[in-house]
Design a protein around this nucleic acid. Structure first.
Lengths: 166, 166
DNA sequence: CAAGATTGATCTGTCAATCTTC
DNA sequence: GAAGATTGACAGATCAATCTTG
C-alpha cells in the first residue's frame, strides 16, 4: 500500500497504549536495523558482482529451479513475494536484457509464461557462488546449527504473524 | 550502491562454491522473506494510520527524543540509517507538510539543524500508539522474554557482520 | 580544500485503470 | 464478468555533481 496517498491519521482509538519495555525497545531497534541494513548489503553485493537486484536474482533463481525454466507470471510473483505489477515491469526489463523471454501459455492464453534464456541461466550460474558466499558470511556462518534452527523458527513465527495480521 | 549502473558480472573467482545445506537453505529462505515482508507490513500500517513512511516515522521519533527536538541532518541520517541525500529529500517534504523545519546551525553554518514542529510532534504522538501496537503484535508478542533476548542477540550479531563485511 | 548538505537526472515501485482471454 | 497480466502517471531513492561554510 505505501505510496503517499496522504491519509489523515485516524484519531487513535485511545486504547491503553502498551509501551515497550527497555529490553523490548532495544530488541526492536536491533531487529529494525537488520531489516533495513541486511537487504541493502545484499543489494550492494548483487549489483556489484552480478548487475542484478535482489528481486531480479530471485526471479532467475526460481526460474532455474523449474525443469522447463518456465513459470507463470502469477506463480513467479507469489514465489518471489512481488506484486504482479512490479514483476511485470521487472521482467520487461530482464527481457530487454535478454535474460528472460515471455510468451502466452498455449493452453490458456490468460497466463503468461516467463522463460529463462540461456543467457539468463548463465548469468545466474555465474552469480550464484558469490551471492551464496555473501549470504554465508553475513548470515549463515554467524550461527551454530542450533542457533540457526532457532532463528529459522523465529522467522517462521514472524511470517505467520504477518500473514494473519496483514 | 543499488541503482542499475549495469555492471558486468565479475567472472566469479572460481572459488570452491560452498553451497547451503537443506537446513541452511530453508532457514535462509525464511529469513529472506522476513526482511522483505516485515518492512512492507510496517510501511502499510504507518501509511494507513499516520500517513507516514517507516523512515519518516523514525525521523520524527528520533527528533522527539532530543530535549530540543533538534538534530543535525548528518546526525539524523546516522541514527535512522539513511543516506544524507535521501534524508535531505525526505526532510524537505516533511518541511512542506509543516512537520519539521530547518535552519543553519548558528554556531557553525556548515551544519543544518532539523527541528520538529509542534505539528510534527502532535502527529508522532498521535501515531505512536498504533504503530507500537503493530510492532507488538507482529514481533514482540510473538516471543517469550528469553526468546526475544535470543533474537536481539542474533540481530546484533548480524549487524556486526554487516558492518565488517560491508 | 574538506565536511555537511542540497540538487537534478534517472530508475524503480506503487496504485489504479485498462486490456485480454476464457 | 473474473482472473491474469500490462500499462502509465507519479512518488520516492540513488548516484554523482554541486554548492556552502569554515
Amino acid at each position: 500500500m505505501p505510496s503517499a496517498t496522504r491519509k489523515r491519521p485516524t484519531k487513535a482509538a485511545t486504547k491503553p497504549p502498551r509501551w515497550l519495555s527497555k529490553e523490548e525497545e532495544a530488541a526492536w531497534r536491533a531487529i529494525a536495523q537488520v531489516i533495513v541494513k541486511l537487504p541493502w548489503a545484499l543489494e550492494c553485493q548483487l549489483q556489484r558482482d552480478a548487475g542484478l537486484s535482489f528481486l531480479e536474482y530471485h526471479v532467475l533463481a526460481r526460474l532455474s529451479e523449474d525443469p522447463e525454466h518456465t513459470l507463470r507470471m502469477s506463480e513467479l510473483a507469489m514465489l518471489t513475494d512481488a506484486s504482479l505489477s512490479r514483476l511485470s515491469h521487472l521482467v520487461k526489463r530482464l527481457e530487454t536484457r535478454g535474460l528472460v523471454r515471455r510468451e502466452a501459455d498455449p493452453a490458456d492464453g490468460r497466463f503468461t509464461n516467463a522463460i529463462m534464456t540461456k543467457a539468463g541461466y548463465k548469468l545466474l550460474v555465474a552469480s550464484a557462488p558469490l551471492h551464496v558466499a555473501r549470504v554465508r558470511s553475513l548470515v549463515i556462518d554467524a550461527f551454530s546449527a542450533g542457533e540457526l534452527r532457532q532463528l529459522h523458527d523465529s522467522s517462521e513465527r514472524l511470517l505467520a504473524r504477518i500473514e494473519t495480521v496483514g
